[in-house]
Design a protein around this nucleic acid. Structure first.
Lengths: 194, 194
DNA sequence: ACCTGAACACCGTTCAAGT
DNA sequence: ACCTGAACACCGTTCAAGT
């Protein structure tokens, strides 16, 4: 009869995140994760496939756990809140965060975040055919910025970087506000959010 | 009497880049680099310190080898040329390129590229106190975009990504053209470049 | 079904030794 | 001065075996 499992996929990912936060991605070995769980390295393979899939799982977990703003908020507040949340995630997991830029954005977690941005852009009145383009530009900048800051690439201090992000945000949001509006019903009501 | 050295720092970095391009960063081991050079792994340490410094050296090499545009060109052309060059570098070395976002931009190679952007921004008439800010925003986006594209993060095809970059470029350049101009001599002459 | 022991082919890095 | 042999403490992954 099958005894209860000692570990599962979720506990493995949690342990891996803890190991990476403590010792960096370089110290993130199957053996170290296993030791934290009180198990041998070979036990992990049943639950996460192999090390590459474990890394993919970490990236996905960061995306799934990113707090999304209340959809009832005005679109400007939603976009700035998501940017701030990304930045916080990067600070919390500086070693794992850069991987977000290196994996295809096709997972449920990636789609979850992307759709939230799409909705904010639609509410902003962006032309539908421009929505994916604007999302790529926004997400690329925010991910790159958060990764750069967390990795210490910038020489500027936190206050200046706060201003950088605010500056970029104003710039984007103002451009959005003046972008061509797609005609259609329900548009006027959404605009009330501003 | 000292016999001529078989390898030096430069040949080690060149071999490392070749190994990374062929087998990915995961396959970039001291032993693999040494084998390519016909030498043992231990011989590398005298020339590159250790593996981390070898990786730093690769990043620096990419920056030092980035072709910079003729300073006589108009600033718009210079900025777009640098963006295109970064994108090409990312395509040529997709495995090493992401490291550019993870190392402090304090090396001579990083300064070299940054100063070229600074000069273009000054020639565009950007207020001096805004120049570092705009450079951080520009470099972060371009690095993040090139890394994302090279790693296959985007689902969009190359044609759409070309348009993304053109779209972002127009947006930035138009914003720059309308930015407050710092007063001073020599300004009018530079503006003639446009 | 889940975990382990043993094994294989690897790693980065040091240090003394060779030339 | 430059490279190597030997050694150490690690890796990821497999497979058959245990429960």
């Amino acid at each position: 009869m099958p005894r209860p499992a000692q570990i599962d996929r979720d506990s493995v990912l949690a342990a891996a995140l803890a190991v990476a936060d403590a010792g960096g991605v370089a110290g993130l070995s199957m053996r170290a994760v296993a030791e934290r769980l009180g198990v041998t390295a070979m036990a992990l393979y049943r639950h996460v496939g192999d090390k590459q899939q474990l890394l993919d799982g970490l990236v996905e977990r960061l995306l799934l756990e990113l707090p999304l703003p209340d959809p009832a908020l005005p679109w400007r507040q939603r976009l700035t809140a998501m940017g701030a949340a990304m930045r916080q995630t990067a600070q919390a997991h500086p070693q794992v965060f850069p991987l977000l830029l290196q994996r295809p954005a096709v997972t449920p977690g990636a789609r979850r975040v992307r759709e939230a941005v799409y909705q904010a852009l639609r509410d902003a009145g962006a032309a539908e055919e421009l929505v994916p383009r604007i999302e790529r530009v926004l997400s690329t900048f925010v991910l790159g910025f958060a990764a750069s800051e967390a990795a210490g690439r910038f020489t500027a201090g936190k206050q200046e970087l706060d201003l950088d992000l605010a500056w970029f945000g104003e710039w984007v949001l103002n451009s959005l506000a003046s972008v061509d509006r797609a005609p259609g019903p329900g548009q006027a009501a959404e605009d009330m959010n501003e």
